[in-house]
Design a binder for these strands. Structure first.
Length: 594
RNA sequence: GUCUCCGUAGCUCAGCAGGAUAGAGCACCAGAUUCCUAAUCUGGGGGCCGUGGGUUCGAAUCCCGCCGGGGACACCA
């Protein structure tokens, strides 16, 4: 049997309907849904089968529902099936069938909930922070959402490659090179260049470099100081002349160091990508020209002048002839420039090369996690991928809204200048990787969220991180007290001892884990996992609390070894499902609190 | 002006590819509890699901208009 008892029942229902209506084609049943009814008193499951099939069968749904209910009632899995409302069938499962979820979970372990392998290969790109400095909290949500989404898709049976695109070409890394050059000069003895007076402060040194070389130093961060030091140690004064070759060397060196830092930040967050793709390497390999040629071959490129943007026109706007891509053929609002008026490639063109590179590696589904400020970029990228793949490979983008960090009820401003620049490393150090990851997933990713530094470390019901971890720790504490019985030993327990509504409720919740995985993966909404775990923890805490009042409901009953064994099986299975869910989220379960 | 996301309880948010009487936590009210199975528990009040239409057996959910809010809008990355 499949892990998912809802899918199992759906199969039985479709089969039963097929016997009642032998002439109906299979696709008539495609909209049949089996789900837990909102109202618990309606039973364990409900199906809309009679409603959605009624029209094709030319039968009034209530009548069909009655027939279906009768057929289902004779199944061994089903205790009771009753037609209801406009054509639903409510199903109450045999308790034995429901309870069988417990040994199933124990047998499958944390693999419980895994979906059947899905065809195709998914490429999921996320983070892709520019290699111009350490990661800050703004990058954090995308990193967590992307990583959890990757975990979720894998769990659901997809073959997922986690990719990081390094923006190591273009103006920003050139600015990084200049800033590194400045820090390099500072690391040398002053008389090596004589650009500033002895004792000149940082602003003066910066101004001297800007004046001497006619550049603007955009990156002033102190994180470049060690880069300058290392350059001075490795090359002495050999790089004093900022020639093209020297700047290239410095750029590569700085990018490498920044990527090391970013990888360290990601590792601290528990994020590991499978592949790092370099923009500069793609350009060197000629991917840009290749992509352009592909588009040109389809007559999708032309020289043209774009209209001024609607609304407020920029003051310096002037018509310019550029190389344009016919994005409008693929649903975009305007055609998009591939080359600037000076003939150099746009970022968009490079990104097309990036996507061509993905397609060439055989991915059949492309996914991105982007910040919401990139929302306007989605259409054109989808247009490009559609053009390059003959509309066969879909590109989907999950947008992550901004996170406001709050402490003591006050927003924590992100300002490099004011020195309140919150790096990802700072955040992780303050509250821990697991709290960061879990909390980032307690909101839908396209909704703005507040990250309350005080709340995430609070040990109370209000803090879902704590609440879920606490449930696991409690379960583990019970199992330890019982001598940590092996799963194989618990599988044989006589589960008929589990009859309290709270116990059965917990089993029902666990039973829904596979369909939560399936649904969340299909919707690309990893936050659903966090909500599920919160609910599961709630069910477990409820049972625990009943045991506080009524000692007969406690898990360990010295006088009743069989009942104890059954309950330990339940507790153990619950802990397995929590671990399974936390595993998807990349959060480490705790054995005990503190 | 165009595109896009959003509008659900006093607050913060869920609502699972259209389903039955719309949920949770906080806050509020009422009880219980000081027990290491610790870091509370049980119950209760509270909603024109922004608004007006449409689609259909059925809409918080899908479509259109309006109102209100966030974000993005030539050659930046």
């Amino acid at each position: 049997m499949n892990d998912d008892i809802f899918a199992h029942l759906r199969g039985l229902i479709v089969a039963a309907l097929g016997r009642i209506l032998p002439d109906l084609p299979a696709e008539a049943f495609s909209k049949v849904v089996v789900e837990p009814p909102r109202e618990a008193s309606h039973g364990d499951m409900a199906t809309n089968a009679a409603l959605v099939v009624g029209k094709a069968a030319k039968l009034p749904p209530p009548k069909l529902a009655a027939q279906l209910a009768e057929a289902l009632a004779s199944l061994p899995e089903v205790a009771e099936a009753t037609p209801a409302g406009p054509g639903f069938v409510n199903i109450r499962l045999e308790e034995g069938f429901l309870r069988a979820v417990v040994p199933l979970v124990l047998r499958r372990g944390e693999a419980f909930g895994e979906g059947a392998p899905k065809p195709g290969r998914v490429n999921l790109e996320y983070v892709s922070a520019n290699p111009t400095g350490p990661m800050h909290v703004g990058h954090c949500r995308g990193a967590v959402v992307g990583d959890a989404l990757a975990g979720l898709l894998s769990k659901a049976g997809f073959d997922v490659t986690k990719e990081y695109y390094i923006n190591d070409a273009g103006a920003q890394v050139q600015a990084l090179a200049w800033a590194s050059f400045w820090r390099y000069l500072e690391a040398l003895p002053r008389d090596a260049h004589g650009l500033w007076e002895e004792g000149a402060d940082e602003a003066a040194r910066k101004a001297a470099v800007e004046a001497r070389y006619g550049v603007q130093l955009q990156y002033g961060g102190h994180y470049l100081l060690p880069v300058g030091q290392a350059l001075a140690e490795a090359h002495g004064s050999a790089l004093l002349e900022p020639s093209e070759a020297n700047l290239l060397l410095i750029r590569r060196f700085a990018v490498e160091r920044m990527m090391e830092e970013i990888r360290a930040d990601l590792a601290a967050l528990g994020v590991r990508h499978d592949v790092f793709v370099s923009e500069a390497a793609l350009i060197e390999a000629g991917k840009l020209e290749e992509a352009e040629a592909r588009l040109a071959a389809q007559n999708l490129i032309y020289r043209g002048v774009l209209e001024p943007p609607k609304g407020k026109t920029p003051e310096d706007w002037e018509p310019r002839e550029q190389t344009l891509f016919r994005a409008t053929d693929f649903g975009d609002e305007v055609d998009r420039p591939l080359r600037k008026s000076d003939g150099s490639g746009t970022y968009f063109a490079n990104d097309i090369a990036n996507h061509l590179h993905k397609l060439e590696r055989g991915f059949t589904q492309l996914l991105h996690v982007w910040g919401a400020d990139h929302g306007g970029y989605v259409r054109r990228m989808q247009a490009a991928v559609a053009a390059l793949s003959s509309r066969e490979v879909p590109l989907d983008v999950v947008l992550a809204q901004i996170v406001h960090v709050v402490k003591d009820g006050q927003p924590v401003r992100m300002s490099k200048r004011a020195g309140t620049y919150v790096t990802l490393a700072d955040l992780i150090e303050e509250v821990g990787k697991d709290a960061v990851r879990f909390t980032m997933l307690t909101r839908k990713s396209d909704a703005q969220m507040e990250f309350d530094l005080d709340l995430v470390v609070q040990q109370s019901r209000d803090n879902p991180v704590f609440y879920v971890q606490y449930a696991h720790a409690r379960a583990r504490s019970v199992l330890r007290a019982a001598g940590d019985p092996a799963a194989s030993e618990l599988e044989g327990a006589d589960l008929s001892h589990l009859s309290d509504p709270a116990e059965l409720g917990l089993i029902r919740r666990m039973a829904s884990w596979p369909r939560v995985v399936e649904g969340a993966a299909a919707a690309r909404e990893p936050h659903r996992i966090a909500f599920f775990l919160n609910d599961l923890a709630g069910d477990f805490h409820l049972l625990w609390n009943k045991g506080k009042d009524d000692t007969a409901l406690r898990f360990i009953q010295d006088a009743a070894p069989e009942a104890t064994k059954a309950r330990l099986a339940l507790v153990s299975a619950m802990a397995v499902v929590i671990r399974s869910g936390l595993g998807v989220m990349g959060v480490t379960p705790v054995e005990e609190m503190r």
